[in-house]
Amino acid sequence: MIRDITIGQYYPADSVIHRLDPRVKLMAVACYLVSLFLFRNVAGLVAVTLGLAGIIRISKVPFRYMVKGLKAILVILVLSTLFQLFLTPGETLVQIWKLKVSYEGARNAGFMIIRLTYLILGSSLLTLTTTPNQLTDGMEKALRPLGKLHVPVHEVTMMMSIALRFIPILIEETDKIMKAQLARGADFESGNLVKKAKSMLPLLIPLFVSAFRRANDLAMAMEARCYRGGVGRTKMKPLSYHRRDGVAYLVIGAYFLGVLLLRKVS
């Protein structure tokens, strides 16, 4: 189950989306996320759905691969749906004992499910089509103005790319430790919440120790390869805009404008 998390995993394929400049993709995701919370009617929903479906199609990332990432947010999804369903005041639709489901609640819950699902799908598409290095390169370049305010942009983006690189390794390790503890009779499933949380300790401590050891090793390996911060560094793949990036910016603008206009449609 724990291996199903697809966030932060790159899916190698040859598509226009893969080749786009990461800055464009970051902009696109930002616009997309805002648009998710802008639409409030079915027309807007259709527009967002078409947009997402189109991009997924072009990206050549198999849809089943993306859906796997959704399992991770299932709990949040269910919880927020329940809250929306029962706690929104309004015209009563169904009444079960003391719990009222309002018409507005059902509508909000429906939209909430769709919004959260689309949110995960859209943002995982970013990491699936962009290598972490490209992604952090894009961020580094897009956030460069902050460097003037003494924000350590290079260091932060480097940390992010390393974190992304180690996510699958640490997940695998968690799996391994879990199995080792299970084999020795550990029980992660039964008991109440407190007991469950306590039973996680023998999992977390070895994981933390190993993460620190890895960090130490990696720091040494990076130093041995002459890493000394962002100053004087060159890039194997420096970012530069192409025509397709300009076109993509136009498409994003058009999409955003479209969603804004559809808000007016009642």
């Binding site: 790159y10 290598t131 290095n133 790319s161 050891r213 090793d217 990696l218 390996a221 194997m236």
Partner: peptide, 13 residues
């Protein structure tokens, strides 16, 4: 440890 000295998520990078 081969894992702890690879920095990037793509071989060539």
């Amino acid at each position: 440890n081969p894992d702890n000295q690879i920095v990037a998520s793509v071989v060539e990078e």
